[in-house]
């Protein structure tokens, strides 16, 4: 085998540290805030790069993103962390994709690029759908291992340790396959300045949804987005008796 062709899809999301606010028209959240790479996708890129560093034969790491023009920044970050090249499918406003649309798109990319391993985040922290990886594996008819906390590859055999309720589960499967990443998999590196500069010279291909000829029309309609009700302030009681009578008053006792 000449080495793995790894595809790592990455998504530009509202920075995890930013508190999202619902917009005035209640159709979504205010997006005029700091964005960065979906944290789970950072783990995916890091794992792909580490596979290469661990001397697993890796022919290529391809970073892929579908999103607005600024998603290109996220692909550059991925390339600064170690991806070799990137593809950016530019989606204009109104062309937002649902997990199934993304999975279909990724299937096309996998076929076009002859990828044999897809490492993607288990979910994006904006929509929290956690469906894309599974759908992609289904569409491709490949093996899948979700929520990976450890990945080992020997020849065409892949061992993945995944976290499940109450312990871990170890899976073994043959390539090609789809792996989704979880938080304990690794600790992503910083993009170093020399690598950020090198990343500028790495190839980044621009495409549009039309190039793939897919029906990605949304099947869901967002009716309304609202903030959770504000937490009511507590009251201070003077003593234990006061607390008990208060609890009784509230019907908790």
């Amino acid at each position: 085998m000449s080495g793995l062709r790894i595809l790592v899809p990455v998504k530009r999301v509202i920075d995890y540290a930013v508190k999202p606010r619902v917009n005035r028209t209640q159709t979504g959240v205010d997006t005029n805030v700091k964005h960065s790479m979906n944290p789970f996708d950072e783990l995916s890129i890091e794992e792909a790069v580490r596979l290469r560093e661990r001397k697993t034969p890796v022919q290529e790491i391809l970073a892929f993103s579908a999103g607005p023009a600024k998603s290109a920044d996220i692909i550059r970050t991925a390339m600064a962390m170690g991806a070799d090249r990137g593809i950016h499918v530019q989606c204009n406003e109104g062309e937002e994709l649902e997990p199934l649309g993304v999975a279909k798109l990724l299937k096309k990319v996998v076929e076009g690029e002859k990828s044999d391993l897809v490492i993607l985040g288990k979910q994006s922290i904006d929509d929290d759908a956690a469906q894309t990886g599974q759908m992609l594996a289904g569409l491709l008819g490949w093996s899948q291992a979700t929520q990976a906390s450890k990945v080992q590859i020997e020849g065409d055999s892949v061992t993945v340790v995944r976290e499940v309720d109450g312990g871990v589960e170890t899976l073994k499967a043959k390539l090609p396959m789809v792996i989704t990443t979880d938080l304990r998999l690794n600790e992503p590196r910083y993009a170093s300045l020399p690598n950020i500069m090198k990343a500028k010279k790495k190839p980044l291909e621009k495409k549009t949804l039309k190039d793939y000829g897919l029906d990605t029309a949304p099947r869901l309609k967002t009716v309304k987005v609202t903030e959770p009700p504000a937490r009511k302030g507590g009251v201070k009681v003077d003593d234990v008796d006061g607390m008990i009578s208060k609890l009784k008053e509230l019907g908790a006792l």
Partner: peptide, 22 residues
């Protein structure tokens, strides 16, 4: 700025935070 200080050898190495966590 980063390109300049790297290329002129003023700084030996460096990183740039990519998100709020970093």
């Amino acid at each position: 700025f980063l390109e300049h200080v790297m290329e002129s050898g003023i700084v030996s190495d460096g990183v740039l935070a990519q998100d709020q966590t970093q």
